[in-house]
Amino acid sequence: MNKSIIRLENIKRDFIVGEETVHALRGVSFSIDEGEFVSIMGSSGSGKTTMLNLLGCLDTPTEGDYFLDNVAVSTMNKNQRSTIRNKKIGFVFQSYNLLPKTTAEENVELPLMYNPSYTGKERREKAIKALNDVGLSDRLNHKSNQMSGGQMQRVAIARALVNDPVLILADEATGNLDTRTAYEIMVLFQELHKKGRTIVFVTHNPELAAFTSRNIVLRDGKVIKDAPNERIESAKKMLDALPKQED
């Protein structure tokens, strides 16, 4: 049996807005094993964002248990969750969230800065390796405002890889990119998946679900579909099929 990375048991999350209680998640249970590439889909209001915040240890459930890499997160305090985010999770955001006027390498080093066990030299080495893995070895000293959207997202992915996380959480990672660049990023995610990384990809775009190995669909705070993807499409093929850009 594969090692389970994420285990959700009857997760509920309520928000109190004024006098009303909004049930964002109404009892969700599933687990994700090591090496899976899961897409979580749903229209707006389905509980996607709440799910992402919970999986990312940014939030805690009102009810239910969440185990990340067999560690119970539900009962952790703020600082403990900071530490677990630092060590076990890599985030990739829609809007990249790179530090302005800062080089690619320094951006990638950032998560390691909050982990006192790394020395300055180790940080640099790991950052350069991560940038190599996303194909940006020639852009180490480019500042974030000197790069294209696709390059910035690659830097963000390198930043998510640098701490060797057990889980990479991507939030609409291709949302701000044009079709071609979006496919390029999907190619990168599929390559990472092949290397054995566990990836959770949150999106509202059903097309992207075709590239992942398992699809979870949320509606009104409940899982309405959870099935493995039998026919995983290759993002590389799609990219090659696109009409060549004429410069």
């Binding site: 630092n86 985030f91 969230n97």
Partner: peptide, 16 residues
């Protein structure tokens, strides 16, 4: 604010 959010999401604690 966004920078603070990012730093926190990648592991910065309140005291950092």
């Amino acid at each position: 604010t966004r920078e603070i959010g990012l730093r926190m999401s990648i592991g910065a604690k309140g005291r950092d």
